[in-house]
Design a binder for these strands. Structure first.
Length: 264
DNA sequence: CCCGTGACACTCC
DNA sequence: TGGAGTGCCACGG
């Protein structure tokens, strides 16, 4: 295979080399003082994006700042206490991420946030497109299972909406919950990712918050990729995870609806 | 340091 | 069946 020939450099090696170049590049004074901003298209229309050499720090829809970059810059300064300078383009990975495509090369600058805030945002980041998770799931994944309300507080101040997909965090009772840019946009985003909100609501009305397969013995969140493939005849609905476990089901390893110990 | 405040969840009627 | 009450944890003033 040509790509394994030692005379050639693989893409992986190039990327790795570029990565170390970026890391060792000298940080100039203006770079330390200024963060930069640029506008970009997103699923919610134009957004403004602020970033440093470490990654993206702040995202706001143009709509939410009334189309006024100055208002965006003020909001940014209020939170990060740094001046902004215009840049030509957004960093790598931002454009696909704003379109809802997972971008491996997207870098976020979350320094300055508390450990808890970072844990919440990182857990939220692991929710796949087209799926939802409840606030209590984020709390558990973030290592503070009882800090459910605190999760809401953190997400309410998510500095990088869309990039950290907080629109995928919904209430455990099936309601959609609140959103930085308003619940209407939250619903738009989820529908755009083909989340079947009508089915989720219909199930919730009947008290069903989990779906299990009696062939695999696994229980999932209804939006889980694996749950959507359960043949209707083998699909079992449950109100609580404990109920499903009591009936002999174990939590799905993909969507992780609860701790493994419950299933063991 | 105490106290109030939340993009929530659970338990009761 | 759903709305109020209560518990919770992290932050900010």
């Amino acid at each position: 295979m040509t790509t394994n020939d030692s005379r050639f450099v693989s893409d992986r090696q190039i990327i790795s080399a570029l990565g170390s170049l970026a890391a060792s590049a000298p940080v100039t004074l203006p770079e330390r003082v200024f963060a930069r901003w640029a506008s970009a298209p997103s699923r919610l229309g134009e957004v403004f994006v602020a970033f440093t050499g470490a990654g993206v720090q702040f995202v706001r829809s143009s709509e939410s700042v009334h189309g006024d970059v100055e208002e965006f810059a003020q909001e940014y300064r209020a939170r990060f206490a740094r001046p902004l300078q215009q840049a030509g383009t957004v960093p790598a990975g931002v454009l696909p991420a704003l379109r809802g495509r997972p971008a491996r090369n997207l870098r976020l600058d979350l320094a300055g946030l508390t450990a808890f805030e970072q844990a919440v945002l990182n857990a939220t980041r692991r929710i796949p497109a087209g799926q939802t998770r409840p606030y209590n799931w984020v709390a558990r994944e973030a290592g503070s299972p009882r800090a459910v309300r605190a999760v809401g507080t953190v997400l309410a101040r998510n500095p990088v909406p869309l990039l950290v997909p907080c629109h995928r965090v919904v209430r455990a009772d099936g309601a959609i919950g609140q959103y930085t840019f308003g619940p209407v946009h939250k619903e738009e985003l989820l529908r755009g990712e083909a989340v079947n909100l009508d089915e989720i609501r219909s199930l919730a009305r009947h008290g069903v918050h989990y779906l299990a397969s009696d062939t695999t013995g696994i229980v999932c969140f209804p939006s889980c990729r694996d749950a959507r493939r359960i043949t209707p005849a083998h699909r079992q609905g449950f109100n609580t995870l404990a109920g499903a476990v009591a009936a002999g089901y174990r939590p799905c390893r993909t969507c992780r609806p609860g701790v493994e110990e419950l299933g063991a």
